[in-house]
Simulated scan of single mutants.
Amino acid sequence: MVTTGDAAPDFTAPLANGDIEAFTLSDRLDDEAPVVLAFFPGAFTSVCTSEMCAFQDRLAAFNDLDATVYGVSRDSPFTLNEFREQNDLEFGLLSDYNKEVTDDYGIAMDFADLGVHGVSKRSVFVVDGDGRIAYSWVSDDPGVEPDYDEIEAAVEDLS
């Protein structure tokens, strides 16, 4: 699992932003860093919806710090666009449909009793302009949301 101080694994994934386009982390760092990558297990679930809506509620604060927020899940980009629309999310969601990003970041988990395997643990990584992990938080409990004040403070420390 990557942690604070590590190089952020680079990746390319579909970006659901109302449309669908390719997103490559390293290509975005010059203009968008710090980048907040908020991994969540699945769209349209209660805690994940609450988390993404909490990021939406704090989006102005992240924008004021010149940070860019992205949600990341194993859902398809089409599902993520519908999730964005239904929850009025103004930030992009990245589809890790093939589980490559989840594996590269070392945060896969299973809900074996439900037959669901390889979803992302609820995790947040802040990537600085040099492509390093400036902040990391990973939960083994999918029902726990991150400390949003702590994430915002980590972003503010980069300014």
Score class of each variant (00 low, 15 high):
E90Q: 15
D110W: 06
D66E: 14
N87A: 05
L65N: 12
S123V: 08
F83Q: 11
G129H: 14
S73K: 02
I107E: 12
D27T: 07
L80C: 12
A38D: 12
D66Y: 01
R58S: 12
T45K: 02
V47G: 13
V127W: 03
F39S: 02
L93R: 05
A8G: 10
F125H: 04
V47D: 14
P41G: 09
T45A: 04
G129D: 15
K99M: 06
S50W: 03
G18K: 10
F125N: 05
D130A: 14
E85Q: 14
E82K: 15
S120K: 07
F91W: 10
M52T: 07
L89I: 13
E21G: 08
V72G: 06
C53Q: 15
V127T: 03
A60L: 14
F40H: 14
E21L: 09
L29A: 06
D104A: 15
Y70S: 08
M109S: 09
L93D: 02
A33K: 03
A16G: 04
A7T: 14
D27E: 15
P34D: 05
D88A: 15
E32M: 10
D103W: 00
F83G: 10
L94R: 06
D110A: 06
M109K: 07
D103G: 02
Y70R: 08
E51G: 01
I107Q: 13
D88H: 13
S73H: 06
D57N: 12
P14I: 01
L37S: 05
M109I: 11
C48V: 03
V35A: 05
A43E: 10
T49F: 09
T45S: 07
L37T: 04
V101K: 00
M109P: 01
G115H: 03
E85T: 13
F83M: 13
S50Y: 05
P77S: 03
L37P: 00
D64N: 14
N81G: 02
L25P: 04
F11W: 08
F11M: 11
A7R: 10
D113F: 12
F62C: 10
K99W: 02
E82S: 15
D66I: 01
Q56K: 05
R28N: 03
N98C: 08
A16I: 06
E32C: 06
E32A: 13
A22Y: 01
S123M: 08
V127H: 05
D96L: 03
R74D: 00
S95T: 01
L114G: 03
T12N: 10
A67V: 13
G71P: 12
D31L: 11
A16Y: 03
S50F: 03
L25V: 09
F23G: 00
V116K: 04
G129S: 15
L93V: 06
V119D: 11
R132A: 15
V72H: 09
N17G: 09
V116N: 04
D88V: 07
P41I: 12
G92C: 09
N87C: 08
A108E: 15
E85I: 01
L80F: 07
E32V: 00
R122A: 14
D6L: 03
D128I: 12
D6V: 06
D19L: 08
T79M: 03
Y70G: 06
L80R: 07
F111W: 13
G131N: 11
A61L: 13
F91S: 13
D128W: 11
A108D: 15
R132G: 07
I133V: 15
